[in-house]
Design a protein around this nucleic acid. Structure first.
Lengths: 242, 242
DNA sequence: ACTTGAACCTCCCGCAGCGTGAGGTCCTAC
DNA sequence: GTAGGACCTCACGCTGCGGGAGGTTCAAGT
């Protein structure tokens, strides 16, 4: 910082960086994109920040500390009307982000609590391959069943399952109504295949049926499958139209 | 998907994208970086994914859903030892992220609850310019005082304040001990300047003094100033050495 | 007056994880 | 034969800077 008499005060980029706690590179960047520009230059080209520039920088810094992007900061400073809507939107975004992080956390803790070290990846793979349409309890059953079935049979079932899912997604993408006979037929194959996985033990079947109904809406968030996927509901509708 | 008899099943990139819910571009990307490569190609160069490729893709997808980066996924799949340490590290990272989001949220809600629409930005600016060394209540007082002082006087004070902060940061960076006479002198200027801001109303002064002592450790987190900044403590030490 | 080291300047590449064309080839169906 | 969809390979764009190269300029000491 440097005084030129009569209260005329200018800042060099390095001093401003130290005072604000930002880096010189960051100030260059803000200058480049026109967010905080040094209003003056020395004859040799060195930036000189005026008090107005400094004030703007501190405004930018405080808005950044609320988690806004640089573009959001720019528009916040350009429009003179209320900042409240912007802040409320930001709060909503933060809430969504918090929810997302929380979902990841709960899944990870559940995984770490419930499974032995070696089974982590295989459990994950099962969860993923079977498209999250079974609960964690069911997956435990399934793994033991898979072990007794032998790897080839499991591979064959997987392939069938994947083909089913792919065809159903195709119909969804095409906008085929769930009541379409072809979709209904696929949903029956879906259930039949599910039965092969769950086996013919009536206790497991009943439990699968029950937990399916109970969890179908929460499974997607539990396992992290995007909630707007809709495949589960699609199949449910087809099953109902049967 | 396509069968070539005897259970030999290959997937085209489009079908695999539909079945997995990822985009074709994503599969290209995974192929480019060698994360999930199509083991085969047709004579014309079209990718054919084998069942092993498909399984690997689902493993990748499930690990991605836990919030791992692509590099973390790669190393997780390459090393055959336990995934538990990796998952625990990821959980720790998620916890830190949750804390960060929570801090932002609380600051925003506090702002939205406590201030009128028009004062949001000016409050933020004050908070930022005065380096978070006053509480929100004090800032309310200060704004009214600033209004009665006139803008030029306020600017002059701001400039002095910024210069002080810059010099103190410089001493901190240089490793000057807080007991150094120069630093002690600066801390006295700091207090004197603070007195100018808080005015000579003894009630405000006392409140400022009290809340300063009460809040000095929590202010940084409240306002979001990095906790490792240390400038507040540095000044406190210098004041004590006086 | 000269030197030296710190501070400053302007390019420019890099990062994660793809999105989004551009421009060309291939495959299948009619 | 041809239309349209699926596939291919570049290659640039996004966020918010970090970091380095290679060249001036400034302030202080001799």
């Amino acid at each position: 910082m440097r005084s030129y008499g009569l209260g005329v005060t200018r800042w060099s980029i390095g001093d401003l960086a130290k005072a604000s706690g930002l880096t010189v590179r960051t100030l260059y960047h803000y200058d480049e994109i026109g967010l905080v520009v040094a209003s003056e230059r020395t004859t040799s080209g060195h930036r000189r920040y005026t008090p107005d520039d400094v004030r703007r920088l501190y405004q930018v810094r405080s808005l950044r500390q609320l988690g806004l992007t640089l573009e959001e900061v720019r528009s916040a400073l350009s429009r003179s009307d209320s900042l409240r809507p912007l802040f409320e939107a930001q709060l909503a975004a933060l809430n969504a982000q918090a929810q997302h992080v929380e979902a990841l956390r709960s899944r990870l803790t559940a995984l770490l609590d419930g499974h032995t070290t070696e089974s982590l990846l295989s459990t994950l793979e099962m969860m993923s391959v079977y498209e999250s349409y079974f609960t964690a309890d069911q997956l435990t059953d399934l793994r033991s069943r898979a072990a007794s079935m032998g790897p080839e049979a499991v591979e064959a079932l997987k392939a069938s399952w994947l083909e089913l899912v792919q065809q159903l997604r195709q119909h969804m993408a095409d906008g085929t109504p769930a009541t379409d006979p072809r979709v209904v037929e696929l949903s029956r194959q879906w259930d039949a295949l599910g039965a092969k996985f769950t086996g013919d033990d009536p206790a497991i079947k009943a439990a699968a049926q029950r937990s399916w109904e109970e969890n179908k809406s929460s499974i997607s968030t539990q396992i992290g499958w995007p909630a707007d996927d809709g495949l589960v509901d699609y199949v449910s509708q087809a099953r109902a139209a049967q």
